[in-house]
Structures are given as C-alpha cells and as structure tokens.
Amino acid sequence: MSSTATPAKIKVETPFRRFVSEFAASKIAVGALLVFTIIALIAILAPWIAPQNPYDLAVLDIMDGRLEPGAVGGGGYVHWLGTDDQGRDMLSGIMYGLRISLLVGVGSAIIACAVGAALGMIAAYAGGKTDSAIMRLVDLQLSFPAILAALMILAFLGKGILNVVIAIVIVEWAYYARTVRGSALVERNREYIEAARCLALPSRIILFSHLLPNCLPPLIVVGTMQIARAIALEATLSFLGLGVPITEPSLGLLIANGFEYMLSGKYWISFYPGIALLVTIVAINLVGDQLRDVLNPRLKK
C-alpha cells in the first residue's frame, strides 16, 4: 500500500530493496501489512461484496432488528454476524463501516500531513518571525484538547463524514508540523543543504527536493500512527453523539449503538465492529511500529 510505495522516493538514503528486506525481517509486521491490505480491499470492494446496502433505508426493516448471528431475515439471506437494532446486516454494516473509518483515517491523515509538513518545513527553513508565528500556532493547537476542539468544530459544522475529516485535520496538523520542523532543523545544518544554498538554488527547490525527502522517515512513522489515532478519534466522537450521521454508521458508531444492548446479552451489535476496529488499528500500529524501527537510523546495528 501507500506505506510501502512512498519510501521508494527516499532511495537517496535507504535503497528500496534494503528497506523491504529490513521491513520483512519482522514476520508480525508482514502479517499486519497483509491483514491491513485485506481490510483495505474489503473496504474498497464493499459495495460489490456486501450482502446488503446498509445505508439504503428501503432494504432495512426494523422487524429484522437485533437478529442473532446466523439467523435468516426478511431479505431471505443469512445474517452471519446478526443485525443491529434497525435490522441492518452487521456483516454489511462492518464492511461499509470500515470504508468510512478508513476514509476518515487515511483521508484526514493525508490532508493533515500535507498541511502540517508544509508549515513545519517553512517554519524550519525560514526561521525567525515566520518560525515563531507558525510554532505559536502549533502550540495554540496542541494546547487545545483534541476532543473538545473536534466537538466544537462539529457542533459548528454539523455531522457528516467530510466535517469529521475537517475536524480531525484541524486537530492533528500540528503534530506533523512539529515533527517535520524538528527533523528539518537537524537537516538544515547538514552539509548538503549548505551546498545547495551555496549554489543559490531557489528556496522552493531546496525545501521540496532536498529538505523534504530527508524529513520523510519520521513523517511516515507519525503518519501511520496518526491514521490509527484518527480512526479512534472518529469512533470516540461518534460515541459522544457527534461524528458521522446515524444512517451511515462507521465502526465507532456501530459500537456505540450496540453497546446499550451489551448488558442484555445482544453482544454481536457492538462486539464484531469492535473487533474489526481493533484489528484495523492494531494492524496499522504494528506496521507503523516496524516502520519506525526500520527508518530510525540510530537503531541500526
């Protein structure tokens, strides 16, 4: 996936092949990557492989609500993972839910990364007033509790997948900015940048052709972790009643919806989406973990 493709650009420092073989040294990480690939495929292909379109109110029937796993509903097919309170097939719900969770997670991570990295690089490269202005903005952002900020942004924008993405981007860009600035500050004083400056290359070229590639490793690590964080944040927001609309539930909303039924023994509404969420986040984190080990030169023997 994207995490294996991007390092190709940084072959200046680490040849791609060496990166792959180092990554593959951990069987767990390879397994996690495989699991993540499968999850991503399920999410992408959901409309073609799910037994039901769980967002189409016309095919839902509350008379099929809360059926046990394995029961056959009014639609004539087996609900392998049961149904929720609206008669929504849980298997389909989870497939579509994965789609939303991944869309929110990956989408917000990419946008936040782009925004944060750009600002962080500018801060590091320009220094002085620009740097301190941007970094105060970062402080401002980081000094504000993510959940509260997201809560207020969503209360203002209203529910919706796009709005959740916007909220998460606003909340998370600062992490990237700080990370990039940190490593860019180190890189800035390296000889190759000095050399580039001596050649009087335009700032833009130095920034994006020379500085950025060398700040990528920490960025990739942070980015991977932030995807997982974004997915969890979205789940929590949905639990608090904001987040995505109830008719198009993400994994977090499915869990929140089903939890009320947990005490009364209808575990499947909350349990299976919980497992799906867990597996997704764990897989992403495991991949990110190995990436960090591989990309951190200080850990190399």
Binding site: L57, A58, L60, D61, I62, Q86, K159, P245, I246, T247
Partner: peptide, 18 residues
Amino acid sequence: QAIGQMWTRVGVRTAIEA
C-alpha cells in the same frame, strides 16, 4: 430511522438527519 424506512416504503424517499 424506523420512520424513514416506513415512509420510503410508501414512496416518500426519506433521508434521516439526527
């Protein structure tokens, strides 16, 4: 959501916003 299902079935296609 349940009412949305019922209205949709009689032809009034209903979107839900909670």
